[in-house]
Each structure stands twice: as structure tokens, then as C-alpha cells.
Amino acid sequence: MFSGFMINAWQVGTIVAIVAGVVGFVVVLRGDVFAAHAVPNGAFAGAAGASVVGLSPLLGLGLFALVAALGIGVLRRFGQRDATTALVLVLSLATGSALLSQSTQYASSAYALLFGEILGVSSAHLIPLLTLGAICVGVVALRWRAILLSAVTPDIASARGVPQGRLDTIFLVVVALATAMTVPVVGALLVFSLIVGPPAAARLLVSRPGPAIGLATLLSLVVLWSALVAAYETNWPVGFFVSTGSAIVYLVARGINHSVAP
């Protein structure tokens, strides 16, 4: 379990879980759950395109996740926030499926891209992943006060001169970067589980933002590590265990929250 390809899986999984915990906390705080679900699907189209033309999947993932994030950011300023997000989402998925339909030898890669393939991660990915992860966490740390203020009281934030529109875009870019690094591990459809489940649970348990983001990261690590162990033991897809773990963590947190403050 701690040799060969699994070493990569442990290292990459740990980085991914930390970034997902930090970024996910802000996603839940800002109520950007739907956007966080849509952006990874843009990444899916990118990875599919990259595999058809023979480019590095990580490059395709990053590029298309950025396009999807910026698309959502621009379009939703014109109103109908959820509807435009949904349309960007289905357009990305449709593009991905059209690209995959053009290459018969990649028939099984659709599954890997959508639901993850922990074995597909090589040690060459480690440095790019560390860099991307550091950027994501760094941006959140730098803009921490502005993010908190605009999420909790948007009016006061505007009055204080926090540029809401720009902050929105910056944050969507962070989600895109976090997504690009998470997709190869847990898949485009399940990035979302890790980004929403543990942070939502942490928010239910702790109300102060500092401790809550710490708890979110911790829970996310626990979920990912146990998913790795379970996937290794059963050979079942790791994404299944990640999403089940996230749901369990959230349900337990909700139960505790309910019994403490009914």
C-alpha cells in the first residue's frame, strides 16, 4: 500500500485534499456550489480535447477550466446566475463528449476523466501540482479578509471599496486551478464532492472562519486518505469512496449540529 504507484497516489492525494479543503471552504461560504460543480466539467472537455490531439492532459484541463470559470464569471453578471452556469456546464460536457466520439481508442478515457483514475497520476505531476496548489492557497490567504467580508456582508464590502466583480473573477480562477489539479485524481464529476462535502460539514460544526477552514482541510484529508485505502483494498473506483466519505462526513456533522443546537 505504501510502495510504487501508491506513493504517488498518497503524495498527490494529500496535496489535492489540502487545496480542496481551503478552496472548498470559500466556495461554501460564498454560496458558489453550482459554479464549483460546473467548472470541473469544462476541465473534462479540455482533457478530452488534449487526449485527442495528443497534448498534455494537465494543460488541457487547466486551459478549459479557466475558460469555463471566466465564462461563468462574465455571463452571470448579466443575470440568471444559475441558468447561465447550467448552460456553460452542459456546453462543456457536450464538447467533451463530441471530442471523445472522434477517437475510438480513447473509449475508456471518458470514464477515467469523469470519475478519476488514481493510478494515472505519475511522479512527474508532483511539481506542477505543488505549484498550482501553492498558488490557490496563497491567493486565498492574501485575499482572506476581502473574501470573508464580501461573502458575509456584500454591502459593507462594497462600501469599504472591495472590488466585488474582480474578487468574483479571481476566485473563479482559483476554483479553476484547484479543479485542474483535482480532476486527474478523483474525476471531473467528483471534484465537487471533495470541494463541497468536508467544508460544508466544517461550517456546520465551527462558526469561526479560521478554525473552520482548518477543520475543512482536516476532514478533506481524512476523506481522501480513507478513500485511497478503500480503493486499494477493493479495486473499486476511488471517486466512489471520496463522494461516499464526503456525504457521510456531512451527514454526521448535520447530526451533531442538530443535537447540539436543535
Binding site: 461554501v28 470519475f115 467528483l190 465537487f192 464532492s193 473506483p237 466512489f240 461516499t244
Partner: peptide, 21 residues
Amino acid sequence: RDVATGIVLSAATGLSALFLY
């Protein structure tokens, strides 16, 4: 409501992953 919907969505997607596998 969005977070709760998201959790249902994510749990279901995980099950899809297992079933398709």
C-alpha cells in the same frame, strides 16, 4: 439548500461511478 442539493448530487455521482465501473 444549494449545499444540501450538492451533497445529494455528489453522493449520487459517486454511486454512478461504482455502477458504471
